[in-house]
Simulated assay, not measured.
Amino acid sequence: MKAVVYDSPRSFTVTEIPTPDPGPGEVRVRVRQTGICATDLHIHNGKFFAEFPLTPGHELVGPVDALGDGTEGFRVGEYVAVNPNMNCGHCAYCRVGNPLMCANLKGMGTNWPGAFAEYVVVPASLVYSVDGIDPDTSVFAEPTACAMHGVRTLSPPPGSSALVFGAGPTGLLLAQLIAHGGAASVTVAASSAFKLRRAADLGIDATYLMDRADLAGDVAKLKAAGGGFDLVVDATGSAAVSEQCVPLTRNGGTVMFYGVTEPEDLVRVSPYDVYRREITVKGSFAAIDTFPLAIAALRTGRARTDGLITHRFKLDDIAAALEALRGDRTVHKIILECWQE
Rank of each mutant, 00 (worst) to 15 (best):
G237S: 11
D230N: 13
G217K: 11
D289M: 03
A206G: 04
P271C: 07
A235L: 06
S270E: 14
K314R: 14
G283I: 06
R212S: 10
F257T: 04
K221M: 07
H311W: 13
L222N: 10
V232Q: 11
V232S: 12
D230L: 04
G226M: 04
E323M: 05
A213M: 08
A297M: 02
V267Q: 08
D316N: 12
A235K: 06
Y275D: 02
S270C: 12
T290G: 02
T300F: 03
A216M: 11
G227F: 02
A296H: 12
V219H: 05
E264V: 11
A225V: 04
M256P: 02
D234W: 01
V232A: 08
G259K: 14
L293P: 00
G227T: 05
D205I: 14
D316K: 04
R299I: 07
I279L: 00
A225E: 15
G307D: 05
G228F: 03
E278R: 13
A225R: 10
H311F: 12
A225K: 08
R250C: 08
L315V: 05
G283W: 01
P292N: 11
L215E: 09
V246D: 10
G307H: 09
I279E: 00
F285I: 11
A321Q: 06
V269A: 14
R299D: 07
D289Q: 09
R250K: 15
R212N: 09
K314H: 11
E278D: 14
A224R: 10
I295G: 00
L293E: 15
E278F: 10
G301A: 05
F313K: 07
K314S: 14
T305S: 12
A320T: 07
L209D: 09
I309H: 08
D265K: 11
Y258E: 11
P292R: 06
V233K: 00
A297N: 01
R268F: 09
P263V: 11
A206T: 15
P263A: 12
P271W: 13
